[in-house]
Simulated assay, not measured.
Amino acid sequence: MEGTNLSSNLAVSAKGLVKRFGDRRAVDGVGIAVPKGLIYGVLGPNGAGKTTTLRMLLGIIEPDEGERMLLGHDAPRDASDQVGYLPEERGLYPNMKCREAIAFMGALRGLPWSTGRKRAGELLEAAGLGHAADDKIRKLSKGMAQLVQLLGSVVHEPELLVLDEPFSGLDPVNQERLEKLIRAERDRGATILFSTHVMAHAERLCDRLSIIAGGVVKFEGTVNEARSLLPLKAHYTPHHHADTAGALLPADAERENGSWRFTVPPEGIESLLVRLIDAGYGISGLSIERPGLHDAFVKIVGAEALEQAA
């Protein structure tokens, strides 16, 4: 996204980020601007360059080209104590108790041990895991251990929380717990930046998002702006003579039992409904649907790119 402003009202900003691995450009000129206090998603198929982009933003790896700023710092690692990070590769000490594991992660960011243990107990209770506070990590399910690691990423109350594919491997109950925790962190005032290839989570959570494919930003904006790239769909049920109503409907109309589904014309649906009523078909049912983020994602990325990623 050429022209991204490296502004003080942004938690994270970058422009022209490039990272090569051999002859391959894993990231090819990515720009990003994450306003403070929002939940911001980086979406893309597997192999799109999401993890590499996040790692460059955090200073874990250096870009070959481009510039970035993290919480006002040109050198991202200077802001490390203000950042919580959940990497794609999870890992905790298996013989540590949950409360101690969370306090330990906070201590690595400068949080006093006693404060970390107190906050750890509060976080575990809020996440519905209070009963496991004194259980060793090795006794937990994979999903519970992942949530404990996430709590360790927020125990020091960071300004920025960066989550790389945080929902991977979680069952629906723990996915719901994680979504609740992410919203709570935003409500606390933190900025959340997370990557995912699962559209449902992004559609529910994101204030803004970028879609990356082939190491390039293909879209940046809100969920509604992405969905608005596709036309509205109508689901119409006539009162009479459903079999022949298709003659008056748009060319893409498809029969669904006694109803029809079609794309709403660019000029709107009102004149079409008038013609259907005048012709005696009437209206027994009508609903207008905006395509979901998944449909917009497929349009933006392209079916061929998704097949290659798969």
Score class of each variant (00 low, 15 high):
Thr4Ala: 15
Asn5Ser: 14
Leu6Glu: 04
Ser7Trp: 10
Asn9Tyr: 08
Leu10Asn: 07
Val12Trp: 03
Ser13Trp: 07
Val18Leu: 14
Lys19Tyr: 07
Asp23Cys: 02
Asp23Asn: 14
Val30Cys: 04
Val30Ala: 10
Gly31Asp: 09
Ala33Ile: 01
Pro35Asp: 05
Lys36Asp: 06
Leu38Tyr: 14
Gly44Ser: 09
Pro45Asn: 12
Pro45Gln: 09
Gly47Asp: 11
Gly47Val: 02
Thr53Asn: 09
Leu54Gln: 01
Met56Asn: 05
Ile61Ser: 10
Glu65Arg: 15
Gly66Arg: 08
His73Thr: 02
Asp81Lys: 13
Tyr85Met: 09
Gly91Leu: 13
Arg99Leu: 14
Arg99Gly: 01
Arg99Cys: 04
Arg99Tyr: 09
Glu100Met: 04
Glu100Phe: 02
Ala101Thr: 01
Ala103Trp: 03
Phe104Gln: 02
Gly106Pro: 03
Leu108Ser: 12
Arg109Val: 07
Pro112Tyr: 10
Pro112Thr: 01
Gly116His: 06
Arg119Met: 07
Ala120Asn: 05
Ala120Lys: 05
Ala126Asn: 07
Gly128Asp: 11
Leu129Val: 04
Ala132Val: 13
Ile137Met: 14
Ile137Leu: 11
Ile137Ala: 09
Leu140Asp: 06
Ser141Gly: 11
Lys142Ser: 12
Gly143Ala: 10
Leu147Ala: 04
Val148Leu: 13
Gly152Gln: 06
Pro158Lys: 06
Leu161Met: 12
Leu163Gln: 00
Phe167His: 01
Ser168Gln: 13
Ser168Ala: 15
Gly169Lys: 09
Leu170Met: 03
Gln175Asn: 05
Glu176Arg: 14
Arg177Met: 06
Ile182Asp: 06
Arg183Cys: 05
Arg183Asn: 08
Ala184Arg: 12
Ala184Val: 03
Glu185Cys: 10
Arg186Cys: 07
Asp187Arg: 15
Ala190Cys: 10
Leu193Gly: 05
His197Trp: 12
Arg204Tyr: 12
Leu205Tyr: 02
Asp207Lys: 12
Arg208Gly: 15
Arg208Leu: 13
Arg208Tyr: 13
Leu209Glu: 04
Leu209Phe: 03
Leu209Ala: 09
Ile212His: 00
Ala213Glu: 03
Gly215Asp: 07
Lys218Trp: 01
Glu220Gln: 15
Thr222Lys: 10
Glu225Arg: 11
Ser228Cys: 03
Ser228Gly: 11
Ser228Arg: 15
His239Leu: 13
His239Pro: 00
His241Arg: 15
Ala242His: 14
Ala242Gln: 05
Ala242Ser: 14
Thr244Val: 05
Ala245Arg: 01
Leu248Arg: 01
Leu249Met: 04
Leu249Ser: 02
Pro250Phe: 06
Ala253Pro: 00
Ser259Cys: 06
Ser259Met: 06
Phe262Leu: 08
Thr263Leu: 08
Val264Trp: 02
Val264Ile: 13
Pro266His: 11
Pro266Met: 09
Pro266Leu: 08
Glu267Ser: 14
Glu267Thr: 06
Gly268Val: 03
Gly268His: 05
Ile269Gly: 02
Glu270Tyr: 07
Ala279Asp: 05
Ala279Pro: 00
Tyr281Pro: 00
Ile283Ser: 04
Gly285Ser: 12
Glu289Thr: 09
Asp295Ile: 04
Phe297Trp: 07
Phe297Tyr: 15
Val298Ser: 06
Glu304Met: 06
Gln308Trp: 08
Gln308Leu: 14
Ala309Cys: 08
